[in-house]
Write a protein that binds this DNA or RNA. Structure first.
Lengths: 148, 148
DNA sequence: ATTTATGCAAAACTTTTGCATGGGA
DNA sequence: TCCCATGCAAAAGTTTTGCATAAAT
């Protein structure tokens, strides 16, 4: 958990204190390569720093979301969102509507659209999230009438 | 609530029955031009057809999501997602991180990327959601050191 | 030394079940 | 007529408060 993380700098610059709870939660999110639920974050926090309370974890998730460091997304089971780290302010993935698996990808080519929208909508854009929906090879019916 | 709606056809084709609950909820979502929370859907259903129970509203929102007709998104205050109708399978908007207002837009130019991903990820893509984050003109600090 | 952020635990809320009944095909 | 989908109401969870205390600056 190097304190040189750009996200930590964002917290600092916004005037927030670098507390155990915040650094721990942020560290967990940075270590996670994909999506993670609040329940999973709670688990890992409990394992790493049992002294940190649940409320602080939720407060931190909210704060990081407000700062644009992470982003909640819907994952199929409506009870809990999954959080993604917005590396460099953006994130892209495809979701299989069959198995709900996430397929991350890097390229999006949205810089031009982003700049265009800044003018059209008179908005100062800081990031974006792009998700595609589809059916992955594994979930696609083999050929003909293969019932579930 | 014309029964010729393409979304109703999707329900039909998938073998689901066209019930009061489903038609009413879908009608509300189609009438709404932007985003709507489950609480707002519940309110409108209660006003329109008091006989329909809450559970059916949630069951319908789930079903419509599974079918790709609507899509839940999170907008900052994380407890409740907002639902958007995926007209033609896709939707695009920008969210002001200051006032949480939505700014919808049409063009996205993602057809090429979509086709490219179908091959790269071996996915049969049916739609997408694109959201930008930024600060709108009204929320931007007037000029210099305007503290919170 | 100040002031922000925390931890605790209960409260508030939304969403989900289970089952007998009603409504759509 | 048959089976799916509903309504009801309680249960199951997750997330949010309030306040005294700890800890970051």
């Amino acid at each position: 958990m190097s304190e040189g993380s750009p996200h930590i700098q964002v917290l600092k610059d916004a005037g927030y204190r670098l507390t155990q709870a915040r650094l721990t939660v942020l560290g967990i999110l940075e270590a996670e390569r994909g999506h993670i639920t609040s329940a999973e974050v709670l688990e890992r926090v409990a394992a790493l720093k049992p002294a940190i309370g649940r409320a602080s974890v939720f407060r931190t998730l909210d704060l990081l979301t407000q700062l644009g460091i992470i982003r909640p997304t819907y994952n199929g089971s409506s009870l809990t969102p999954t959080y993604v780290l917005m590396r460099d302010g953006h994130h892209h993935h495809a979701i299989c509507t069959g198995c709900q698996r996430f397929f991350e990808f890097d390229d999006c080519g949205l810089e031009a659209l982003s700049r265009s929208l800044e003018q059209t909508l008179n908005l100062q854009i800081s990031g974006h999230l792009l998700e595609f929906y589809g059916i992955c090879a594994a979930c696609r019916p083999p050929a003909a009438g293969a019932s579930a």
